[in-house]
Structure formats: structure tokens, C-alpha cells
Design a protein around this nucleic acid. Structure first.
Lengths: 123, 123
DNA sequence: CGGTATCCAAAAGGATACTG
DNA sequence: CAGTATCCTTTTGGATACCG
């Protein structure tokens, strides 16, 4: 696919670009990596991730569910209990995201050095 | 690395997370994929990508240059000529990003189906 | 040509209160 | 518990004007 086709046409993005944004979004990345290990309940996931607001976690989970990456299992009990897990498609996505995350971790030293050199050259 | 460590601590993100944001940012993705093919001049790159403003392209290129992913070669001529290319580190990053992009392209049909099913179930 | 600086509109994100 | 609804703040992005 050509570079220019990954861009906006008129006012909207191409659909691929949207999925890419969803899985690489601020909380999307963390949700996918967390759920790759095991399934989580809503509040449990919220604590695991750390500082995400209810609103953003809900929004992120709904987006990923709609894209078919996350499975939502709401048990009809009181108090409510909802379990989230990855679908097969979601596991593929999580693998890709984790690869990218692992790369940044692996090359972080090189990036830090580059930043120091860059800042140095300009001070 | 544990999930919670990929998150914010106090007010700032962990450095890995920042690099991840840079390479997966709206224009960062397109810049990396474009420069993976060949080097570009500023305006040429702008046309190739399509609808990016000067400001955002400049900002994106500076961020990626600072992270050591993009090499900036400013020729001392009039009119000015600046060539952008990938560093070795940048080529690695571009490979990862392209893998993720290729995945979204490959699985787009499944995602579309999931979306239709999701919307259907709620209408 | 390849930027920088400034201003403004739009979108993302968070705090709080409320509900089944 | 797991959300929804509302309001408000912060961030992002683009248009415009100017400079070396």
C-alpha cells in the first residue's frame, strides 16, 4: 500500500489507519499487553494499568471490542461482574504491539544517547 | 517489563512510552514508512504524505531526529535544500511500524466484520 | 525553500456525580 | 461493580504571517 493512501481523504482517515490508532493509543497499548497475560475484570484492569480514568478505560475497551480484538463477558449477577479477554484477532494485535514495545525497550539506550547528542549540539 | 511500568509515574510517562508515541503518532507512522523507501526533501515529503501542515511535519521530523531515527541533511545552498532519511535505528523502527501497518491491512476484513456485528447487535 | 512564531478551533482526556 | 452523563482542562493540530 502506498504511503499517501494511509492518509486522510477529505475529512476522514482510511479504516486501516483507524485500527492502527486504536491499538497504538495511549491506553489501547496497555490494555492489549495486560490482557495478553490473562483476562481481567474492569476494576482489576484499571488497577493493573494504574492511572487511567473510568471513562477512558471504558472508551478504550468499547473501541477494541467493536474492532473485534477484545471479548466482553458480562455475568448477570449482582453486584455486576464483567470479564475482559482477548479474541484470537486481539492476540495477534497484542503480539504486534508487544513486539514494537519490546523494540523501544531494547533500543532505549540508543535513543537516549541520540537525544543527549541532539540537545548537546544545540546548547 | 510489567504492564504498570509502561504507565505514567506522577506526571510524566516512562521514556519507552514516549518513543512508542513518537513512532506511532499520526504523522510519525507515515514519515517512517515513506522514508523507508528512499530519502525525501521537505516539500517533497509533504506532498508524498498528502495533507500534513508544515508545522506538524516539522514537529514530527524534529522529534524523530531527536530520537535518532531520522537523519537531517541541510545543504548550505540558496534556495535551501534539506534531505531527510532514516538512520539505522530508524530503519529498525520503520520495519516494526510497517509490520503493524501490514497486519492491520491484512486483518481489516475481520475487523470490519466485527464492527458490523457489533453495531448490528446494538441497533 | 524550509522553516519559526502566533493565534485559534477541535479533539482528547480527566473529575465528579449519578444509576441499575 | 461497572458503568453513563456532564462539565471542564489540557493537548493537538491547522491557518496565517513572517524570516534567512
Amino acid at each position: 500500500m502506498a504511503v499517501s493512501e494511509w492518509n486522510l481523504s477529505g475529512d476522514e482517515m482510511c479504516p486501516q489507519r483507524l485500527v492502527l490508532e486504536h491499538v497504538t493509543s495511549r491506553w489501547g497499548v496497555l490494555v492489549l499487553i495486560a490482557l495478553e497475560e490473562r483476562s481481567y475484570r474492569f476494576s482489576e484492569l484499571r488497577r493493573a494499568i494504574g492511572k487511567v480514568s473510568e471513562k477512558m478505560l471504558t472508551q478504550t475497551l468499547q473501541t477494541l471490542e467493536r474492532d473485534g480484538l477484545v471479548h466482553r463477558d458480562a455475568k448477570p449477577v449482582i453486584p455486576p461482574r464483567v470479564d475482559y479477554s482477548l479474541t484470537d484477532l486481539g492476540r495477534e494485535a497484542a503480539g504486534q504491539v508487544r513486539a514494537l514495545a519490546a523494540w523501544t525497550e531494547q533500543r532505549m539506550d540508543d535513543v537516549q544517547k541520540a537525544r543527549l547528542a541532539y540537545d548537546e549540539a544545540r546548547s
